[in-house]
């Protein structure tokens, strides 16, 4: 168990981070190269003003018509995504690891708060799962991969929650937790979790088309 833990938190973590940062850079560079090669006009239509105007509206809860039409989803999705990003970055025990390994550290969340945020992510994942299984318009376009990516995202938080509360076998859960985290990081650039990388670009392009060409709002 100990050597497995060393493996997942050592070499495998290195590989996961390399895949995450390297893969993300690769995907974005490839996208820009493809634009340059086949759809160069996209660059001419991009506008900072309209891109940022569109992104700005869509990253604020209830700032768009559709966010206002879907109040429950809006609250859940914003809470889910904020907690999903912030919890692992500002968790005390994660920062301690950075400190021990590289002597770098930063502000951390109180543990009780991180615990609540973890629960928010897990409940958010459950909400998305139920939505996917019950709403006809979502169910119709759902494929196996949608459940897989949801599981990939939920796993580090479920295992992290168990580990924090020391439920079941702590060493085993810790190993699974680190493994799940590695998998999630590595999966981001290579699955539809890549919406994290690409959505600012798609939003910016649509914002530019609507703002600059159509003279209309896209929110």
């Amino acid at each position: 168990m100990h050597s497995f833990y060393n493996f997942v938190s050592g070499p495998l973590a290195w590989i996961a981070f390399i895949l995450f940062f390297g893969g993300s850079t690769y995907r974005i560079v490839r996208m820009l190269m493809l634009v340059n090669e086949k759809e160069k006009f996209i660059f001419t239509y991009m506008s900072w003003r309209y891109s940022l105007r569109s992104i700005f509206h869509w990253i604020i809860p209830f700032a768009t018509v559709n966010w206002r039409r879907q109040p429950v989803l809006t609250v859940v999705t914003f809470a889910f995504h904020i907690c999903l990003m912030a919890t692992p970055i500002f968790l005390l025990s994660h920062v301690v690891l950075w400190d021990e390994a590289f002597s770098i550290s930063w502000w951390t969340l109180p543990d009780a708060m991180a615990d609540v945020m973890t629960v928010i992510v897990i409940l958010g994942a459950v909400y998305f799962l139920v939505r996917r299984l019950t709403l006809p318009e979502v169910k119709f376009v759902t494929s196996g991969s949608d459940f897989v990516i949801l599981a990939i995202v939920a796993a580090p938080f479920v295992t992290g929650f168990f580990a924090y509360h020391q439920w079941l076998s702590y060493p085993l859960i810790m190993c699974l937790h680190v493994l799940a985290g590695d998998i999630m990081l590595a999966a981001i650039p290579f699955t539809r979790l890549s919406h994290m990388l690409f959505s600012p670009f798609t939003r910016a392009y649509m914002g530019s088309e609507f703002g600059k060409v159509r003279h209309a709002r896209d929110w």
């Binding site: 759809e39 996209i42 559709n66 989803l73 979502v138 539809r192």
Partner: peptide
């Protein structure tokens, strides 16, 4: 087709919104 179609298809999270 190029980046638009590719990125649209790969970014869609199938949320139905």
């Amino acid at each position: 087709t190029g980046a638009r179609l590719k990125i649209y298809v790969e970014t869609c999270i199938h949320c139905g919104l």
